[in-house]
Structure formats: C-alpha cells, structure tokens
Write a protein that binds this DNA or RNA. Structure first.
Lengths: 373, 373
DNA sequence: CTGGAGAATTGGATCGTTACAATCGTTTGG
DNA sequence: CCAAACGATTGTAACGATCCAATTCTCCAG
C-alpha cells in the first residue's frame, strides 16, 4: 500500500482565516494540494458555488463563473474525482481484466475498450490474470475495491462462474468476453467461433481439399472446442471423415505449433490442408512446413483464425478468419456503459460475426498431390 | 460522466437505529452497498474497530478480530479504497499512458508495468494517446483527476515538456519512458538506442559488409534519430561513408517499409545490408526484398531493432537488438513506486541496455556480390 | 480490595466534494 | 407598497473510511 505522509501545518488557533491561507500558500504551495475550498476562498465565494461551476450548472451568474474559472486556472486546481464519486455514489472507471496484454488479440481488444471508454470520459482500470484463476480472483478483488462502475472480464480458463458472481456481487455490472461463463446474470460478448471455423473449412473444401486437418489449440479451451466443432460441422456436411491424426493439440504459440508439424504426416493418408486454432499456430505451421520442405500456400493450404496484424505480411500472407478485436473492445465498452446507465437492460448474449479473409496461404488442391495415394 | 441514482429510502424520523437497519437490509440489500458501519453494527462494535481489523492492526483482540472477519465474510463487504485514500491523502493507483497498445512493444511494456504494480498491490490506470499531443493532454488531465500516486508516460511525438509539467504539477511524480522530454524534474527510463544501433552496425561490418543502409523510421522521431546516430558512429569508426540514398525514411510500419524497398537500389553503389529502425520495418524490408527476387539472409543482410515476438519466427529469423520491453515495464513501475515511497530521491536518468540477438537474417557478405562493381 | 499499567475499544473530527434546503437580493404584478 | 417570483448564492450534512485522543476494560501486584 502506498502511503505518503505530508507534514502539513495545521493552522494554530491564533491565526484567523486569511492569514492562515497566506501562510499555507507561501510555505507549502508545492506540498499541499489545491482544493475547491482554496478556489472559493481565493475569489470570495462559497465552495458550493465553485462546485456548481465545475458541474457546468446554469445557475451561476456569468461574471461569477468567469471569475472562478480564472482562479481555477491561476491556482492550477485539479478536480478530485474520487471525492466527488464518494459523495455522489458513482464511479467514473471501468475495470478491464484480460489474460495477457502481450497476446496481440487482447492488446487490440484492450485498445478498443480504452478508446471507447476514454471517449465517454471514463477511465480504464487494467488487470491481467495470466490465465490463472487464482490471480484472477486476486485481481478482481483488488479492482473491486476501487469501485468501478462496471467490469469487462475475459475469464481465465477454468473460471468458476459462481465464485465470480459471489465476488463481484449484484452491484457491479459484469460483461464477460470471449468465453462462456455460467453461474450469474451477465452480458456476454463472444466470437462466432463455430461459424468462423465452418467458414474456414468450407473455403478449403471449395478449393478441392478433402483431407483437412484441425491444427493446434488446447483441448480444454472453450474457444478451441467451438472452433473444432465448426470444423467438424463442415467436414461432416461435406461427408469427409477426419482421421484421428488430423486433429493435433498444441499450446497456442508459434513455437509449440512449429514443433508439432511432424505429427500431421506420421501416417497416411496425410492431410493437404489445415484449419488452425489461431494465427499464431498457423504461422508456426507455415514455419514447420517450410522447414520440412513443403511450401505453405503451394504444397499445403493453411487457414488461420483472428487476423492478427502479422497475418497480412507473413510468407505467404495468411488466409484467416477476422474477428476485429479492436471493434469488439469498443463494442464491449459501449455495452457496459449502456448497462451502467440503465441497470435494468435485458441480459444480452452477443455473438460477434467472423469473416473470411482470403490471402495466399490457402491454395487449391494440387492435382498431382491430390491423386497420389 | 456516469451517474446511477439509487432510490435509497432515507429512514424516516420515527424509526430508531436497529429497525431502520433491518428495514434497509431487507428492502434494499441488493441495492445499497455494505459499508464498514454495517459490519460494525452487525457485530456490535464501533466502526473504528472494524477499521483496525481491516488494517491488520495488532491492537484488536484475537476473538474480536475473528468475529469481525466472519461478519465481513458473511455480508460480503468490499473495502472502499477511494474513501480510505481520501482520508489518508494517499493513492493506490498509478497511471500508465502509452502511445498505442496495438503496438506490441508498448503492449509488452504495459504488461510489465501492470505485473509489477499488481505485485505491489497497486492498480493501473490506463490511457492511450495515439501519438497525438492533444489527446495526450486530455488523457493526462482525465487521469490526474483520479489522483494517481504516480504517472508513467511514454510521451507522444512532439510533446511539450513545459506544458506537461504545468499540467501534472509538482505533486505527482512522473516517469518519462522511451523519449527525452525536457522541461521538468522527472525520472527518465530510455533505451540505449545509440549503442544498440552501433552494435547492429558493428555486427554487419564484422560480417564483411561495407555498403550498409539505415532503413526506415521518421526523421523527426527522437528514437529514430538516436538509432541513426549510432549507425553513423559505427560507420565513421569503420571509415565507411554512407551514400545519401542508403538513408531511407518510411513510416514505421511493415507495409510502408515494404513499399520503399526499391529506393535502396535506384542508384549504384547499392547497399548489401541494412540496419533497420525497428523490427516492423525490418520485416517489411525482408518482404520487399523477397518480392524483388533477393533473398534476405543470403543476398542481403538485415538487422532489426526491438526483438518483437515475430522476429524469432520470421523467414528468415531476424537478427535484431533486444530491448525487453516487459522488463522495462517492470523497471518503470518499480522506479515510480520507489519515488512515491520517497519523493526526495534524486532524479535518475536510466538508460536500459540493448543487446544483439543474432539470427539468420544477417548473413556474411557474399564475395561475388561484394566485388561486383 | 485497590491502584494503576497495559490492552482494547470508541467518539468525533476529518479528507474533498456534492445535494438539499434555506437565504438573500431584485424585480414584477396587482 | 407588499407579495410573490425569480435568480444567485450559501450553510450544512452527508459519502465511507481513518486518525487521534480519550475512554473503558483487564488483570495483577501490593
């Protein structure tokens, strides 16, 4: 806890008002903070009037307002929103809890949230969980003490909805992002993972591929499960039965994905294309393919998921499913602001659309390859 | 501004203490927030005692403490840190203002800051400027109203130090990151751009290159200027005079960089290697080279700057200067916490080291190429 | 049984702001 | 000339915690 003690001279009883003020202003101008009282005193009005000016109330006479505003400027007064919030029982902050900012998907999301909140004159309280439910608990508790008006939470894997509901209480509206979380009454903003993966798989099918793998991601991750389900939907709709070795699990990182590429080709029939859990994995796959002498986008088709910035500039540029995390961030922020303004809004489950972005990594099936074996 | 009005029943004069409490608790348990008073009342002690428990004071008897803690748990009380901060004249938040979170360098930095602040029980107030001094002014003013204990600012290009000093005032310690900013008394944490670029250039010189370009970045960016100076240092130390067309200015993005690659080769003598302003530019350069039939890492050596995650997995993997933004973030947070704890610390200008990470994009000079013309 | 030293607890003022009711001038209509 | 109406301003009590001095409780030595 931060605690800076200031050795502030409380005026001795012998000094009356003005003298004391002068004394303070000379002696400790740089130590003590200017308050609304100082402004009031400085131009001979009551604190209440200054407060009215700060609230842009039309009740104050124009000339008085001007005088007060000049004094505010002169003394370099800064409004203490915490004090105001305490009195008004309001809050001008929203808490944002994500897994990890170094994941570009979440970084973009956070940027979008912050952008929209700032536009509404609201400040972002940041927290990150590192995908640990224990840290999530701690971070949530810590942020709640700052009485945010609302919370945007991208829950860590394996979160317990009831525990979160108990922690947050009924006072603070919560918006859950990116993952289903049962156990409470809250808004949800999720991606259409299933339809996205169906889109990706359908695209590869349309290019002539039949032996399509689903590559990467953790089995127990809900987003991975949804994407895999979408892939399976599309495959069975096209009457293609995936071989077990076409479903490869990896940590969702480039490096880990690159290491696992071999597993795709250990047994025949080998796949000619892959739908990947996300772009990181897809880029790793491209790398691993190149290392084994297969050229992605020519010998093997790859589709990613997320459309992170480097997808557009990889070699070859990656076909992927765009989810526009920045727009999702703005959307989340706007939704929570709306709910704060009106707590009686109906709970909404919003599934954001995903769209296919075709680039060069998804090539048609090569006849020679397709026919071989 | 957020303002949720609660239709709270103020107890009518006819009701005395306990009845009123019961009424409130039945009628509006889910509306009204639990305060420390409620806990005190709930177990028949004074608010002061509850406060002592919350502060882990050793003055309360163990049995009393247990009783109070149970009540806190039972009622689901959440501490109101804003109220405490108001009374104590302290703050448990630090403001972090960066250019843009979607830049992975800043995202990593922010992650590091948040990590270290959270470990100290302190919350991060986020703000982003989008490299606009006007937004920076607004964001800074808005965050200051929340009375952060300190501010970590990565100033927007073209910031006016005096204006910032005036805005922030002498009360709130400021740590400036990543860019020099004159005009006030504050700590600085910067990267050793000059030495880093010298390292990069020296590495290429050691590989036999003499015709080395400095590619990318904005002329008016201070970090770009410093890196270019480092490059020029190393070149002149090796008695190499750079041709004017070896110094190419671009926006610091992959796409823009890829577009400008042609400019390197419009006139003889053409360079055989390039030190890039940053990794984004370097990756763009690799892309542009490939598009023109030159293979980076074989026909042309490339060195980047920053060591962003994709540098390790590009084609070819990029030799670069690592600055470890996450560690810088932790460092910044720790420094501002130290200064908050002791405002009389001497001002520190910290220049973080940069280290060369050799990968495959920096190849030795090919004899055939080197001798031609 | 009493005095008094600690230990444990508490009342009340306070942090900087705002809501509310009350006040003070001015003006206007009757 | 008074009442009412209005516009502008203000005193005071909160908001939810903490600090400080003062008080009460314990317990033990004498």
């Amino acid at each position: 806890m931060l605690r800076r003690r200031m050795q502030c001279n409380h005026g001795s009883p012998s000094m009356h008002g003005l003298e004391r003020y002068k004394f303070m202003s000379r002696r400790s101008l740089s130590r003590r903070k200017i308050t609304l009282r100082d402004i009031a005193q400085g131009c001979g009005v009551s604190p209440a009037t200054v407060s009215l000016v700060l609230q842009r109330s039309p009740l104050v006479r124009t000339t008085t307002r001007a005088r007060i505003e000049a004094e505010i400027e002169r003394q370099g007064y800064v409004y203490n929103r915490a004090a105001a919030n305490l009195r008004q029982r309001t809050s001008s902050s929203v808490a944002l809890i994500v897994n990890d900012l170094s994941n570009p998907f979440f970084a973009e999301f956070a940027a979008g949230v912050d952008e929209a909140l700032a536009a509404a004159g609201c400040v972002t309280l940041l927290g990150s969980t590192g995908e640990s439910t224990e840290r999530q608990r701690a971070v949530l508790a810590s942020l709640l003490e700052h009485a945010p008006a609302g919370i945007i939470l991208s829950p860590a894997e394996g979160s317990d909805g009831d525990a979160i509901a108990r922690l947050v209480g009924a006072h603070t509206p919560l918006l859950v992002f990116n993952r289903e979380l049962g156990g409470g009454e809250w808004d949800l903003l999720a991606l259409d993972n299933r339809r996205g993966a169906r889109l990706a798989t359908g695209h590869l099918l349309a290019l002539g591929h039949r032996r399509i793998a689903f590559f990467g991601g953790h089995r127990d991750s809900s987003s991975c499960r949804e994407r895999r389900d979408g892939y399976l939907d599309a495959m069975s709709a096209a009457a293609c039965a995936p071989e077990p070795q076409w479903l490869i699990e990896t940590a969702p990182t480039r490096l880990e994905a690159a290491r696992q590429v071999g597993a795709l080709f250990v047994r025949d029939p080998a796949p000619t294309a892959a739908v990947c859990y996300n772009d990181a994995v897809a880029l790793g796959l491209q790398l691993g393919l190149a290392a084994r002498g297969r050229q992605p986008g020519r010998d093997f088709a790859v589709v990613g998921f997320d459309d992170i910035p480097e997808a557009a500039v990889s070699l070859p540029p990656l076909t992927t499913i765009a989810t526009d995390p920045r727009a999702r961030g703005r959307q989340a922020a706007e939704r929570i602001l709306a709910r704060v303004a009106d707590p009686d809004l109906a709970i909404a489950r919003t599934i954001a659309p995903a769209r296919l972005v075709v680039r060069e990594s998804s090539c048609p099936l090569l006849e020679s390859k397709g026919v071989r074996q």
